[in-house]
């Protein structure tokens, strides 16, 4: 066993782990951070994406011991005092999800993308989150959500986004009647 000190979502933890423990298993099973999910377990799907020292990584492809001395942010650490992160809010507003399984990873990857490119084009968004798979194929609204969050986070909510093909946050609630109430 190896002792590691990791700060997760603002709280410092000191734990003994086996070197073979994957970061995602440490987060979920030892620290109870079950908001981060295990999807494909083969580094493809990105559902387990967290921020390691501020950078998006696939936590199923990082050993917990590699995170020793680092700061981890999971989906559970984004909201502040009950207020959703703009990206979380945008995914909610634009209904950027269907089953929701890919959502934690999508949100963490999208925030990382905006850190480097605060106003990405639609193509740059699609390429920027290529490491995250939505098995429901709900990409249209995911891309809209990232566009909305980008506008909000850079303070340009009124701008025209994308190439004109996709309008900002026009949610087809007919396809998602259960969120119609949330939109009104």
């Amino acid at each position: 066993m190896t002792q590691i000190n990791v700060r997760v979502d603002g709280v410092s933890y000191s734990d003994d782990v086996e070197p073979r423990t994957l970061l995602v298993h440490h987060l979920r099973e030892q620290l109870g951070k079950v908001g981060t999910v295990v999807g494909c377990d083969t580094s493809n799907c990105g559902a387990c994406t967290v921020h390691l020292d501020g950078v998006a990584v696939k936590s199923c492809t990082v050993l917990a011991v590699q995170a020793d001395g680092s700061e981890v942010t999971t989906i559970e650490g984004l909201a502040q005092n009950g207020t959703l992160h703009p990206m979380q809010k945008a995914f909610h507003d634009s209904h950027g999800l269907q089953c929701g399984f890919c959502t934690p990873g999508m949100i963490m990857a999208s925030i990382d993308l905006l850190t480097e490119n605060p106003s990405p084009s639609e193509t740059e968004i699609r390429e920027g989150i290529e490491g995250n798979l939505c098995r429901c194929t709900g990409y249209q609204n995911i891309v809209r959500a990232v566009q909305q969050a980008a506008a909000e986070m850079s303070g340009t909510q009124d701008r025209t986004v994308g190439n004109g093909h996709v309008s900002l946050a026009v949610v087809d609630t007919a396809a998602a009647p259960h969120v119609a109430g949330a939109q009104s």
Partner: peptide, 9 residues
Amino acid sequence: VADRQVRAR
């Protein structure tokens, strides 16, 4: 190469 997260590591 792969994707953004993989290129970070």
